[in-house]
């Protein structure tokens, strides 16, 4: 059977089973959405991690005898520590102003902190940590070291909130992963169902062609080719859906979560889409090819 006949066979099978081809395309579209969604989701979580990292800091309260010059000196030294992104000296008046800002929404008459004097607040260092995966541990380590430093009276590692935030990120990541795995299983199950339901017709065709003297490879190739084509179509549709819908979806989600990431989301690159489609096509080719059952070879007379 030459290429023209194989192409004709592919066309005939597609015409004979349009719903099977459509279902196969949809299943591969779902697989593409799962794979692409996982890739984009991983990037989104990394961006959110950076956002969390930008907002993580420790507060080191300084002794009363530490003047501004010495505080600046300490800030300079701490700024050279690898885990530290930025160190800011907070003057007592600044600390009071911040506290007032924070308390304002909760005070009915706006005078809740009227009795407080700036001198009540010690000079402090606000240490922002560099973004990293193990921020809680880093913050705890740094706090431990600072507590023994001269001129530092107390350190608030502020890790409780951070730990809670990171737990939520982990929960979100696990939830996303579970949803993706479930969708992936649905897609695989759909593909298996399609192939099992179509197996009878495919087996009959294979038996006829075997009886006519067709080689196993030529019998299986048309099924492999149409499945590969369906995988390409479904995968292409999936990539298009992600290209159009991912950024608006992510934007809305970040808006609801109150996340303001410093970098814009990165879409799937051309080579990622091309390699993903190639992988789906190869998967389709292999599935269609090997799912074609060949009749058992002849018995002895």
């Amino acid at each position: 059977m030459n290429a023209a006949w194989i192409a004709r066979n592919v066309r005939r099978q597609v015409e004979a089973h349009p719903r099977t081809v459509m279902a196969t395309s949809v299943a591969f579209c779902l697989l593409a959405l799962v794979a692409g969604g996982a890739r984009l989701g991983t990037r989104a979580v990394a961006r959110w991690g950076a956002f969390v990292g930008q907002n993580v800091h420790l507060v080191a309260y300084l002794a009363e005898d530490v003047d501004r010059q010495r505080a600046l000196g300490l800030a300079k030294i701490l700024g050279r520590t690898p885990a530290v992104a930025r160190v800011t000296v907070i003057e007592p008046a600044q600390a009071l102003a911040r506290l007032n800002d924070t308390a304002q929404p909760f005070a009915s008459d706006g005078r809740a902190l009227d009795g407080l004097e700036p001198a009540y607040f010690p000079r402090s260092l606000e240490i922002s940590l560099a973004p990293a995966a193990d921020l809680t541990k880093r913050a705890a380590d740094l706090a431990k070291r600072l507590r023994g430093a001269p001129g530092v009276t107390a350190v608030d590692a502020m890790t409780d909130g951070l730990a809670r935030l990171l737990v939520w990120v982990k929960v979100g990541r696990a939830l996303g992963l579970t949803i993706l795995v479930a969708l992936g299983l649905v897609a695989v199950l759909a593909l298996v169902t399609v192939f099992v339901r179509n197996r009878g017709a495919v087996a009959t065709r294979a038996a006829v062609l075997t009886q006519l003297g067709e080689t196993p490879a030529a019998i299986r190739l048309p099924s492999g080719l149409w499945t590969a084509a369906a995988a390409l179509a479904g995968g292409g549709a999936g990539a298009l859906i992600l290209a159009l819908a991912w950024q608006p979806f992510l934007g809305r989600l970040e808006e609801k979560l109150g996340i303001v990431a410093s970098q814009p989301p990165v879409p799937l690159a051309g080579f990622e889409i091309a390699s993903g489609l190639a992988l789906l096509m190869l998967t389709g080719l292999a599935m269609g090819y090997f799912a074609t059952p060949l009749p058992q070879t002849s018995d002895h007379a």
Binding site: H17, A201, T204, V208, Q211, E214
Partner: peptide, 22 residues
Amino acid sequence: SLPFVRRNIGYYNADALLVDED
């Protein structure tokens, strides 16, 4: 090698196995 023999033989039997969808 058997397919290359079978393809030169027109074989009809009682089963009359055909592809229904064609």
